[in-house]
Design a protein around this nucleic acid. Structure first.
Length: 389
DNA sequence: TCCCCTACCACTTTTGAATGGT
DNA sequence: AACCATTCAAAAGTGGTAGGGG
């Protein structure tokens, strides 16, 4: 059983930084508690380096790996129970951004959410002993801005901010994840701007310094763009789009089915889902502390009726049954009004980098306070994406 | 005009099939 | 025959940027 436990109060949560424990489940889920799952972000120093500048992740139509890539260690699992471990991406806020004058600025309201995708670790399902044996790398997870992507890559909007969310689900197969209790983790340091080209030169430099693949360009000398279009061949076109490394861990499209967010409780919590998923107070409190003055301007950016609904466009039908996880499912460890338990951020989301960020986060703060006492809106972002109904 | 996206480049790293040795 | 180690070609992946499009 994936259980909740560990850090309960905010101070503990903030102290834990990159080593996250799940907040305890609400009483309703106590019967499923048998331990305390902990997740630690690997390469935390690297992530922090990028985060201090403002991490950017390239997204391309063909799909691009992350750098730094997500790698975590897990403990507290039951050695002989099977688990599925997955990642999805959530928007940090309700804005889109632009890079202007050496800084990120809010450029308006976020685009409607693209189809929600979830990446499953290739080893899934595997016993807890396996997961705890070594760190889990999500190196092969790819990000794309192609909303019609058929490879199962994570679909994001450019110039928007996201953070990865890790799910640990007790399940014997990807087809039964809907039934198993699960816990969710996220790391503030992993927040990033999705971009099609790097905006911040500092990020480029940092990536080149750390990413061996970039050395070819740096050390290879000049780009002979005079040759461009002379050869009518694309490195990608001459290869199969999906290959031996093509995300074996991706959830079969058949499994990417979830209840629409317009359903049930999700409709009630229409807006602010992201903010709520980041809430728990920590994030917002920090944002306020950071720049209370500038936060005064936040309300001008308040969004109205932002549509967070997720719709899966990929509709393969190789399986007759398309499991989904319903937020109303009884085993869901997410409480309806336990703020600490709504999500598992032990830390506030990333520190604001500039005025725009602070405003955005203040927006989150305001919104979160409006959400206090409300029902859980974590459900805005289903654990598994869905295709159709 | 501005902003963002796409396609392409040259190079490094990774992958896995083929081969040879024990 | 089975296993392990090595080799090497192909595939994958990378950031920069010209050009295109909205």
């Amino acid at each position: 059983m994936v259980t909740a436990g560990g850090h309960r109060n905010m101070q503990q949560l903030c102290d834990s930084k990159l080593n996250l424990s799940m907040p305890c489940s609400p009483p309703a889920a106590d019967s499923y508690q048998q331990g305390c799952v902990r997740m630690t972000l690997e390469n935390a120093d690297l992530w922090t380096s990028f985060h201090s500048i403002g991490t950017e992740m390239i997204i391309t139509k063909q799909g691009r790996r992350m750098f730094p890539h997500c790698s975590v260690t897990v403990s507290g699992l039951q050695p002989f129970a099977n688990y599925v471990i997955m990642v999805d991406m959530l928007p940090v806020d309700s804005f889109k951004y632009k890079w202007k004058k050496e800084r990120w600025e809010v450029a308006g309201k976020a685009e409607p959410q693209p189809p929600h995708r979830t990446y499953m670790h290739p080893d899934s399902p595997a016993p807890g002993s396996h997961w705890m044996k070594q760190s889990l790398s999500f190196l092969k997870m790819k990000l794309t801005n192609n909303t019609l992507d058929q490879h199962g890559y994570i679909i994001l909007h450019s110039m928007h901010r996201y953070y990865p969310r890790f799910h640990v689900i007790q399940a014997d197969s990807p087809y039964t994840v809907r039934w198993g209790p699960f816990q969710t983790f996220s790391f503030p340091e992993t927040t990033f701007y999705a971009v099609t080209v790097y905006q911040n030169p500092k990020i480029t430099k940092l990536k080149i310094d750390h990413n061996p693949f970039a050395k070819g360009f740096r050390e290879g000398g000049t780009h002979s763009h005079s040759k461009r279009y002379r050869l009518n061949k694309s490195p990608l076109a001459k290869r199969p789009a999906l290959d031996r490394t093509s995300l074996p861990g991706n959830i079969p499209p058949d499994l990417q089915r979830m209840p629409s967010t317009s359903d049930s409780v999700q409709a009630e919590n229409h807006q602010a889902s992201t903010q709520a998923s980041l809430k728990g107070g920590q994030f917002s409190d920090l944002a306020l502390q950071q720049d209370p003055f500038e936060s005064l301007h936040a309300e001008s950016l308040e969004l109205q009726g932002y549509d967070y609904s997720c719709e899966e466009q990929m509709v393969p039908a190789s399986l007759p049954q398309q499991p989904y996880r319903s937020v109303e499912y009884a085993r869901m460890p997410f409480p309806s009004n336990d703020v600490d338990g709504v999500h598992n951020l032990s830390q506030p989301p990333p520190l604001p980098l500039n005025t725009a960020d602070r405003r955005a986060q203040q927006h989150d703060y305001n919104h979160q306070h409006h959400q206090q006492g409300n029902t859980a809106d974590w459900s805005q972002y289903p654990l598994l994406s869905y295709t159709s109904w």
